[in-house]
Simulated scan of single mutants.
Amino acid sequence: MGFYQFKRSQKIPATIDEVWDFISSPANLKEITPDYMGFDITSEDLPEKMYPGMIISYIVKPLLGIPTTWVTEITKVTDKAYFIDEQRVGPYKLWHHQHFIEPIEGGVMMRDIVSYQPPFGILGSIMNSLVIRKKLKEIFDYRVQAVNKRFGEFK
């Protein structure tokens, strides 16, 4: 039963305020998620900005187009610096996603650390090697492109 981390960094040519306003709004999640994931927020009356304790529910189709309920809680938020979301209901035994932003010369550095544990013990570890890790890379590759489309590429 494996425990894994996936890390990604991206430089963005925008201000810390612009990037924070974008990433801290639950409404923008769909924009940075590939269409094939069938990502739909099912929570009603979400506020414009996340806050600690906020619960967000989704339907996603991460594998073979099979709809899966995913519920995350925003557990920590430090304005214009970071937030953490943790799975409460969903496909993983453990999902802990840290989102960091910090000003750098010419823009913002955005970093993600996803700590996760697939379900099903050794079978989950095999699935991580064959599918899950590649799927996470693909999803975050898409997100890099979506953020570049929104803010431009860092030069």
Rank of each mutant, 00 (worst) to 15 (best):
D21P: 01
D21K: 04
S24H: 10
S24M: 15
S25C: 11
S25Y: 03
S25P: 00
A27F: 13
E31H: 03
I32L: 07
I32H: 05
T33E: 05
T33R: 08
T33A: 03
P34G: 09
D35P: 07
D35K: 15
Y36G: 08
M37R: 07
F39A: 10
D40P: 07
D40E: 13
T42C: 08
S43D: 12
S43Q: 11
E44P: 12
D45S: 14
L46T: 09
K49H: 13
M50D: 05
Y51K: 13
Y51C: 09
Y51I: 12
P52C: 10
P52T: 12
G53Y: 04
G53Q: 08
G53H: 09
M54T: 09
I55Y: 15
S57M: 12
Y58H: 12
I59N: 13
P62H: 10
P62R: 03
L63W: 14
L63P: 06
L63R: 08
G65F: 10
G65E: 13
I66C: 11
T68V: 11
T68D: 06
T68R: 03
T68K: 12
T72P: 07
T72S: 15
E73P: 07
E73T: 04
I74V: 14
I74L: 08
T75K: 01
K76H: 15
T78Y: 10
T78E: 15
D79F: 12
D79A: 04
F83V: 04
I84C: 09
D85T: 12
E86G: 02
E86T: 08
Q87H: 01
Q87V: 12
R88D: 11
Y92K: 11
L94C: 06
W95T: 00
W95I: 02
W95R: 01
W95F: 02
H96M: 05
H97T: 03
Q98F: 12
Q98E: 15
H99M: 08
F100W: 13
F100I: 02
E102R: 15
P103W: 01
E105A: 08
G106L: 05
V108F: 03
V108K: 01
M110H: 01
M110V: 08
D112H: 02
V114T: 06
S115Y: 04
S115N: 07
S115G: 09
P118I: 01
P118T: 09
P118V: 11
P119S: 04
F120T: 06
F120R: 04
F120Y: 08
G121P: 11
I122M: 12
L123S: 11
G124C: 00
G124A: 04
S125A: 09
I126V: 15
M127S: 10
M127P: 06
N128A: 09
V131A: 05
V131L: 13
V131P: 02
I132K: 03
R133F: 03
R133A: 11
K134I: 09
K135M: 15
K137L: 10
K137D: 13
K137R: 13
E138L: 08
I139Y: 06
D141N: 13
R143M: 09
